[in-house]
Every structure is written in structure tokens, then in C-alpha cells.
Nucleic acid binder design. Sequence first.
DNA 1: GCCAACGTTGGC
DNA 2: GCCAACGTTGGC
Length: 154
Amino acid sequence: MAYWLVKSEPDECGIDDFAAKPDDTIPWDGVRNYQARNFLAKMAPGDEVFLYHSSCKQIGVAGVIRVVLAAYPDPLQFDPDSSYYDARSSPEKPRWQAVDMQFVEKFRGVVPLQTLKSQPELSELPLVRRGARLSVMPVSDSEWRHILSLAARQ
DNA sequence: GCCAACGTTGGC
DNA sequence: GCCAACGTTGGC
């Protein structure tokens, strides 16, 4: 089993959206960055994922979700009405992938970005590197445990 | 709202 | 294949 971190604006899809329907799966779609897509494609059912809230009041890791369905072609890339439409994509040659996620846990408090940045144990995490824009990234076992322990102190 | 950092595009 | 211009991300 592998660990990951994904970014989202909570206005779009945050931990509360998952918590509101814990038995449902929610498509993680709209990823339009090649490096992020390549990580998405490597996700397997059962993998656990930190959900990071960006561009909001409480920036940081808000909880845990889980991969339920491995990567499949993102339907939005074929939808001309979607802002995620990609004319260069076709069903025969899809360019973008999505996965399905499900709620696991909402932390009592968000683990703030500032806290994450202050941890020497997390210095390799792309999230805390300057100007990092990657929205899907792998998390090592030790980084996973460390962030979980920070969450437990919230 | 600002703006630095970054990824992508497209002319050459 | 280089690189300037452009658009976007995302913290502040």
C-alpha cells in the first residue's frame, strides 16, 4: 500500500464534502498537470491519501481519504461544457486520468502548512518546497506517520 | 488583490 | 531544442 497527498480548495471539494457522505465515492478529476497525472495513475485501491486544503482560511492537511477505484480516463476531458475539457483528448487516446476516493478521517484540526514547513522530517515533501505547485504527490511511510502524529496533537 | 514561482505553449 | 511569453497556482 502506498501513501499520497492531494491538494484541493475546500470550496471545490474539501474534507467536509467527503465526511458528508462517508459511504459514497467521489471522483478525483480535473487534474491537468502531467506530473500529477502520472502519480494519479500509480494509485491503487486501498492507498491512503492526505487531503490538503489550499487557497482558504485554514491552509494545511485536513484529513485522510482512500483510493477506491484506480485510474480511469477523466470524463471531463471529453465534455465541451466542462472547464476541464481538452480538445486534444479523445476516448481512444485519453490524456487525463481520474480516480475515485472515499472518506476515511477528518482531523480534529487542520495541520497547518506552517507546522509542516517547520518539520525537518518533512523537508523532502514537495508540498513544503518553495513555490511547489504539484497537486498530487507521493508521501513516504515515515512522512505519513509523522504527519499523523502532528494531527493527533491538534 | 498582489506577485513570485512554476508549467506550458509556440515561434524560430 | 531553445526560450520568451503567457497563464495558472497558491501563499500572503
